[in-house]
Amino acid sequence: MFTVRTPRVVAARRLQRRRDRDETGRFLAEGPQAVREALKAGVVVEVFCTDEARARHPELTHDASLVDDDALQALTETVQPQGLVAVCRQRDVSLREALDRRPRLVAVCADIRDPGNAGTVLRTADAAGATVVVFAGDSVDPYNGKAVRASAGSLFHVDVVRVRDAVAAVAALRESGLQVLAADGYGETDLFELPAPARPTAWLFGSEAHGLPAALKELADARVRVPILGGAESLNLAAAAAVCLYSSAKAMRESE
């Protein structure tokens, strides 16, 4: 049974730091849902589990390395870990590779710094049928532990693209034929009044603190605001992303 001092556990634990994730191209996914989806995606390098988790999830742990409770606790970032952690290969693709698959719905996260928001947007985009999620500019690492947990397995379902040059990324989206819509609380176009052509669409989302950079707004075909019908000051990023992405998903379904 592995302990906190076992070299493979020590190496895996280092993946809690971004520097080590970037250097190795690997990350940690914890909990049965994430491990299950990682195994389906074929990106698992190794699974660590406790005795209890092996008994509870035999379908996920037949090749797993057994660890004691202290080692499992060291590998996880949650207060009550579920006994399973997988070391996974990062699954980034280039923007060109993603666009060559001709996606119909894309979510672009520009300068999003909160990992919980990043993971929730991944989950929301996957649920709405988006097949590409782009993390552009100075965005959080989508392989951050909190982001991976918040994605609830959706990280393994979509093409994940990371690009530094957000302006160039949006230009590439436009050149590939996608209409580009910027989610903007002060946008000129009301979401309810937005024409709903069944064109492939990329939605741009900025950070809650600063919104979208002006340069990206200028590249959009429309700057779209979600109407606030009650007394709420605004929607958070994840809620706004859900409303916008499902609006496009509805339009596309109705055109079929």
Results as ranks from 00 to 15, higher is better:
Gln73Arg: 11
Ala41Arg: 00
Gln90Cys: 00
Ser154Met: 09
His157Lys: 13
Glu193Asp: 07
Pro195Gly: 06
Val167Lys: 15
Asp92Ala: 01
Gly129Leu: 05
Val140Met: 07
Pro142Glu: 11
Thr120Trp: 01
Phe27Trp: 03
Asp165Gly: 03
Asn236Thr: 05
Glu218Ala: 11
Val85Ile: 02
Glu193Pro: 02
Asp165Tyr: 06
Thr50Gln: 06
Asp63Arg: 08
Val170His: 09
Val167Cys: 14
Glu218Asp: 15
Val85Cys: 09
Arg253Thr: 01
Arg14Met: 04
Pro115His: 15
Lys250Gln: 13
Ala86Gly: 09
Val9Thr: 14
Pro195Arg: 03
Gly25Trp: 15
Phe48Lys: 05
Ala249His: 03
Val108Ala: 02
Arg164Ile: 04
Phe2Trp: 03
Leu28Pro: 13
Val121Thr: 05
Arg101His: 12
Ala64Gln: 04
Phe2Cys: 03
Ala249Phe: 01
Val47Thr: 01
Asp126Thr: 10
Glu218His: 15
Ala118Lys: 01
Asp190Pro: 13
Arg149Met: 09
Val226Ala: 14
Leu181Lys: 00
Val180Cys: 09
Ala183Met: 13
Arg54Ala: 06
Leu66Phe: 02
Cys88Tyr: 03
Phe192Gly: 07
Ser207Gly: 11
Leu122Ala: 00
Phe135Ile: 01
Arg36Pro: 00
Ala232Lys: 14
Val134Leu: 03
Pro197Leu: 03
Arg225Asp: 11
Ser139Thr: 12
Leu122Gly: 00
Cys49His: 00
Asp190Thr: 09
Glu256Ala: 07
Val4Cys: 05
Val133Pro: 09
Asp100Met: 14
Ala214Thr: 14
Val148Thr: 11
Ala41Thr: 13
Asp92Val: 01
Asp190His: 08
Leu15Pro: 14
Pro195Thr: 06
Lys40Ile: 10
Leu105Trp: 03
Gln16Lys: 05
Ser234Gln: 12
Ala147Phe: 04
Pro200Val: 14
Arg253Pro: 04
Arg54Leu: 13
Arg14Gly: 15
Asp100Gly: 08
Arg21Thr: 11
Asp138Cys: 14
Ala209Tyr: 10
Arg19Ile: 04
Arg8Thr: 13
Glu46Ile: 03
Ala107Tyr: 01
Ser207Ala: 09
Leu212Asp: 08
Ala214Met: 09
Ser207Arg: 02
Asp68Glu: 08
Thr189Arg: 06
Val10Leu: 10
Arg96Glu: 02
Phe156Arg: 05
Ala209Trp: 12
Ser139Ala: 09
